[in-house]
Simulated assay, not measured.
Amino acid sequence: MFTTAWTASPQSPSTGFTPNWSQEGFWRQSLRQVVRLSAGGVRVRIRLSNAYGTSPLRIAGATLARTAACVGAGAAVLAEPVRLAFDGAASVEIPARGESVGDAAEFAVAAGESVTVTLHLDAVTGPATFHAQAFATSYRGAGDLLADTGGAGFDEVSESWYFLTAVDVSAGRTDGVALFGDSITDGFGSTPGANRRWSDALAARTGRPVLNAGIGGNLLLNDSAWYGEKGVHRLERDVLSLAGVDTLVVLLGLNDIGFSEGAAEPTYRPAPLVEAGELVAGHRELIRQARRRGLRVVGATLLPFAGSDHWGERAAKVSHEFNEWVRRSGEYDAVVDLHRALADPVAPDALRGVYDFGDHLHPNDAGYQVMAEAVGVVL
């Protein structure tokens, strides 16, 4: 019996927030990616996605290894990588819009341990299904580097994940927690490479598998080329299909009301004017979907954001109305008031300075720790 120990929600190829390889794709290259697991086990399997591919994706080979955690290690791994298989074969072809779940490999891991997955892509992939904001380094090098241990051949870096959407372990646990949201859940503002997202902090605090289903810029009610499919559509794929999840925490809607307030945002224009009732209807749909699958659903109030580029008179009004619904409606199984937990005591519509990454919208490492502590109380 498997439990999902790590996940990244897939996105369509795009320019994204930082330079990435999604639009150019890969050819005759190896791709090495490092992920941190929130559960341990004695067997491991990976999930690969071609959700946004328009042609079959060939994976010529894949390996799994223990990450070399020392400073400056780069793409190095601690020992010879273990070869992975797909239905008993060393390679796999994933159809356009499809996914592949690899065979389980004998590989003992502990909760909190990082593992390195390497893919050899010997044929032209075309634009790559990816996750834009990894806040971790991925590596690319020419040729077949599946067995490479030192990492010297990986001479290009990116801060996105590609094709890899989940790692499952043989934990047999059914107490996983999935966090569903936007860039705040994704970890924007946390220290890159340090695993300081609030999902990381919550896993450490609770000892439970915690899965991050955030996408930077994501909206509850509308699709975006950069920011992923709307939340009410992607919940099934990005959360409900995962193994061993029994609790969903929802923190989503700030972009729906905030994108219309900022300066020209070429990646999402025109931005509709969303009312609180529309956000409520979207959240009710998430609750319905999750409960049909037997999940406990926790609702979070939107964080304070006064002074940010999402702030304005209209956004303030809608956020206040929506947060009051979360607090008082009783429609969620439990509520965590993140607005109050992170608010400035003097100016409660603003993030407290010690928790502010600097844009008045995203928390820093300390803010994410507070979020994890607040959520941990209601789990």
Rank of each mutant, 00 (worst) to 15 (best):
T3R: 05
W6A: 07
S9N: 04
F17T: 11
T18C: 05
P19I: 10
P19E: 12
S22Y: 01
S22F: 05
Q23R: 14
S30A: 02
L31C: 04
R32G: 03
R32D: 01
R32Q: 07
Q33K: 03
Q33H: 03
V35A: 07
L37W: 03
S38R: 06
V42S: 15
I46K: 02
S49C: 07
A51W: 03
Y52Q: 11
P56T: 09
A60T: 11
G61F: 05
T63F: 05
A68E: 14
V71A: 15
A73M: 02
A75M: 08
A75T: 10
A75K: 03
V77W: 00
F86A: 06
D87E: 14
S91V: 02
V92T: 08
A104H: 02
A111N: 09
E113M: 02
S114V: 02
T116C: 12
V117Y: 08
T125A: 12
G126P: 11
A128L: 15
T129V: 10
F130S: 02
T137D: 09
S138P: 05
A142F: 03
A147N: 09
A147T: 12
A147L: 15
T149M: 15
T149V: 15
G151A: 10
F154H: 11
D175N: 12
D175C: 12
D186R: 03
G187N: 06
F188Q: 09
S190H: 00
P192Q: 07
G193N: 04
R196I: 00
R197F: 02
A201M: 08
G214K: 12
G214V: 07
I215Y: 07
G217N: 10
L220N: 13
L220P: 09
D223R: 05
S224C: 14
G231P: 05
R237V: 01
V239I: 12
A243H: 14
A243L: 11
T247Y: 09
L251Q: 12
D256R: 10
F259A: 11
S260V: 14
S260H: 12
G262C: 08
A264F: 14
A264Y: 15
Y268S: 11
A271V: 10
V274S: 08
G277F: 00
L279E: 07
V280S: 07
H283D: 08
E285H: 11
I287W: 13
R288Q: 13
Q289A: 13
A290W: 10
R296D: 08
A300H: 05
A300G: 11
T301W: 08
A306H: 09
G307V: 05
D309E: 06
W311K: 01
G312I: 02
E313H: 06
S319R: 15
S319A: 12
H320E: 14
N323S: 04
R328K: 12
E331W: 00
E331D: 14
H339E: 09
A341Y: 00
A341T: 00
A343F: 08
P348F: 08
D349K: 00
R352Y: 05
Y355I: 04
F357T: 01
G358R: 11
D359I: 07
D359H: 06
H360E: 06
P363V: 07
G376T: 03
